[in-house]
Amino acid sequence: MSSLLSFPVVVSALELGFIYALVALALFLSYSILNIADLSTDGCFTLGCAVGAQVAIMGHPVLALFAAMAAGVCSGFIMASLQTKLGVEPILAGIIVNTGLYTVNLAVMGFSSNLSIFKNETIYSLFKDWLGSDWYRLVVSIIIVVIVCALLAWFLGTRMGLSIRATGDNEDMVKASSINPGFTVTVGLCISGSMTALSGCLIGHYQKTCDINLGTGMVTIALASLIIGETLVGKHSVFRRIVGVILGSCLYRFAIAIALRLHVPAECLKLVSAVIVAIAIASPYLKQQIAFQKRKLSSASSAKGGDGTC
């Protein structure tokens, strides 16, 4: 194992795990809680990266985080309006927004498909001298993610947060209890959009570049992290579920890191991701099936003389 996971590999897997955990948290809100499959995640992630990179180039690396989040809120708001005001199916609304965002992202990047911020200060480089060159990226990522998690856990216990959770859980109840489901869905998707965009912004600052195709497949990766987390931690209190999402995101990054160490070519990484996602999603069902088959076999063997045919 030690040959597979050297110290720098572990640190960089953790760094990425924490940054991508924000997208998984966004899906936790939109998919697990509101029960909406938000396919605009890919575009929203790139949007956050592009906006964050542009603002950093202008010389405001801290403001970049908030600008990216504001852009994410806009994306979420449009996605929600399509659903609640215009009656578009959630899946279609996501695809439409995602398609539109491609052009928006290009425009934000000044109609070039690449943006470099190597020469500019980033949120990470600001803290490099303080924290030492080994740890600064991990520490900054952890601090940001912990702040977001604390705010999210607090918010989900407020009246608004409880209303959002009830909207995804039982719409009949929500309608009969003075909550406007259109409003709660809008607020939920705006928050989820802001977290996705924040994650994109951090990745941009981390890699010091922004690419128009950065977000492709992001929804699958985030879903994998989310489901790994839920399979491990289960559906308990909100706080534990949030911790589970972060755990899932880090584990996913370790799986990818191991795949890379095993010399899986970089071009095959998307396939590896897809396989990991499929295994993660299928595992609860498979566990159930294996338990059932075991029970069937043991009852068949205990009933003597029964040869198993009908």
Partner: peptide
């Protein structure tokens, strides 16, 4: 609209599943 009236009108249905959020 329904959700605004619901502040002042309490409602129970025949189906016990309709009035509570099961995962909360």
């Amino acid at each position: 609209p329904e959700y605004k009236r619901a502040v002042e009108i309490g409602r129970l249905f025949q189906d016990p599943m309709k009035g509570t959020a099961p995962h909360m």
